[in-house]
Amino acid sequence: QTSVATGGFRNADPDAPVEVTSDQLDLTRDAGTALFTGNVVAVQGDMRLSAQWVLVEYVVLEDGSLGSDIKTITARDDVLLVTPEEAAEGDEAIYTPLTNEVVMTGNVLLTQGANTVAGERLVVDLETGIGQVAGRVRTILQPQDEQP
């Protein structure tokens, strides 16, 4: 149970526009959900999240209308979170804008340059950019000269 602090996940600009593309979008309005399916790619600034299934849950205002601020974004099926310095893949990722945190679970593989870290759970604080991998952590260091 060790954790590896990385630094590359800082979300440079949380207010930058988010662009989401996918094959399909399914809006169930009074439930306040938007479900993107099929080659979903969400880009904000230089951060890129891709997956096959992304559910965005909005805060539903009291009068039942769809608020515009997001409660959580849940991504599943080959989830890949890429920033200029890091990449993390896993079975599922949950991003909560309120706490500015991404929690990735299931066969997590975090690569940073030549080093990869595998574990069960990755918690990334987008403000500080610190990512902590936990759960059967295995670090695979690529010796520099044996670059593939």
Partner: peptide, 8 residues
Amino acid sequence: GVRLVYIP
């Protein structure tokens, strides 16, 4: 094909 631009 869907393209959404959301400005937080």
